[in-house]
Write a protein that binds this DNA or RNA. Structure first.
Lengths: 286, 286
DNA sequence: GGGGGCGATACCGTACGGGTATCGTCCCCC
DNA sequence: GGGGGACGATACCCGTACGGTATCGCCCCC
């Protein structure tokens, strides 16, 4: 007799209809039927009379409906009290700014889900520029980062969410722009944009086509586009996004795809971090 | 926040020691640690201070301990009330008498487990003789049968619990008794004991070596032994049991092994049946 | 400095809870 | 009276999550 099962039971008892109850619970009807059957064998009593005419509560079911509502109510209040006793809780989330992640659920939606689950907690979302892919995880500026690899993962726990193929960002009038795909060697003589000194080396190397090269320095996606547009520089970006006026993206082969990840400091004490991670993983899966 | 998790939490909060709490819960320590971590991220608060010195409750943990005890208490009472509202519940269990099942948990142990889970219910155990392997399932004399195949399964649901190899039951001074194994054909000219008229044909055929033969009529295991001992009759029995004074069991090849099963009428309304089946299956697995 | 206690982590197997597809049954209506 | 629709049950599949064992990391203490 778990609380989730009791929630199922209350839904069926209120709807008196398995199909509608399942819809209300955002699940399909067969698992709901099974869960109720199991609940019945668990408490050792029939809870519903299933007659062709419809579903009706048995006396035992009526008693359980009462008790279940009470239990669920108290469980909710218990949660609230615990949260209150825990005092002010804060979670600082870092996301890779500007472009962020086009195909994902979006930071706003994630923060919303999180706030619904933890109404007492304060969520701060902090945008990072392309200088630090960890958004300040190492430095302690954020508790959890929703970002993109690769970066130095020592001391961090990482869960992959998705992988995206990458492409070269070129001016539309570049001779290479008409190729169907390119390899890094094809761009060996070009200048690539790079990031300010102190940027994570793995990150720097990956997004500069495999090695550091001379080129304009950028901090944000917008600056990358400008750098490509204004001079012969090339850059890397994700496939599938609209590259912008006067620009073209050509798929790059021979490079590992870029991973969207959620990362946090290993052994982090703040329990909200794990909760956020679970929400993010679930959102990217669904 | 499920009730099971809260039981875990209370155990840890009372022991203030993960290892001991795990022992009390009859589980190992790692899953317990994980469950508590998950609970913490679920409620969004740290519940324990894990210091090298030991484990201590946080303020939030203290609040939850209070609430959890209350919830678990009320859940127990809810169960009791539902059971009371359901009125007198009865489960009649049929077991194949006399020998029953040597290697299994035993009907007494199973009934004990069941009574602990359903204190309000009345359990009646009914021994059957070898005449009816279903112990009166078809006739409605019992709700669930813990028995041995094969038998007519129409209208019944069956779950297999174990299979046992079978052997021929012979007098120790029988010339065939010294063989390492026998096939039914080796016993073609012998008389086999048989069961009273009206016995399930599948059952009758299986335990008479593949066909019906003339021979003494028996109703119980004891009678089988006597029949073999007193005249040249042969019979079938299970390997691994002590056959008794003056008797020998020789393995029989070429026959499907005998299945120990739990069976009930398909679509049975009594929810105690499913509960009993679950208990039996768990007991045979563990 | 080494050993022991204890919680955390890693990894694996199983079972349960979710899904889709289909059935059986009853009702209703043409 | 037969066909179709509504609805709960069943069959089957799959992923997750919860159990387990083995091992690590850390601190304490002798």
């Amino acid at each position: 007799m778990e609380l989730r099962t009791l929630r199922y039971f209350v839904a069926v008892a209120e709807e008196l209809h398995f199909g509608r109850a399942a819809a209300r619970l955002h699940m399909s009807q067969p698992p709901l039927s099974r869960a109720i059957r199991r609940l019945e064998s668990d408490v050792g009593a029939s809870l519903f009379d299933r007659s062709p005419a419809g579903v009706a509560l048995t006396p035992a079911g009526a008693v359980l409906l009462d008790e279940a509502r009470d239990l669920l109510d108290r469980a909710d209040r218990a949660r609230a009290r615990v949260a209150a006793a825990a005092g002010a809780a804060t979670l600082t989330v870092g996301i890779l700014g500007d472009e962020g992640d086009g195909g994902g659920p979006g930071a706003a939606a994630l923060a919303g889900t999180f706030r619904r689950r933890h109404p007492h907690a304060e969520v701060r979302v902090r945008d990072a520029d392309l200088t630090d892919p960890t958004c300040g995880l190492h430095a302690g500026a954020v508790d959890v980062a929703l970002t993109r690899g690769p970066f130095d993962e020592t001391g961090l726990s990482v869960r992959a969410l998705r992988t995206d193929p990458v492409g070269a960002l070129l001016r539309a009038d570049d001779p290479l722009a008409r190729h169907g795909s390119l390899r890094p060697a094809d761009l060996a003589d070009r200048r690539w944009f790079r990031f300010p000194v102190g940027t994570d080396p793995l990150w720097q190397a990956y997004w500069s086509g495999g090695e550091l090269r001379e080129g304009p320095m950028v901090r944000a996606v917008r600056e990358c586009r400008q750098a490509v547009l204004w001079n012969g520089t090339v850059g890397m970006t994700l496939l599938g996004h609209e590259p912008g006026e006067g620009l073209v993206v050509v798929p790059l082969t021979g490079l590992p795809p870029s991973r969207v990840v959620v990362a946090w400091r290993t052994g982090e004490a703040n329990p909200l971090v794990r909760s956020f991670v679970r929400i993010v993983v679930a959102a990217y899966r669904g």
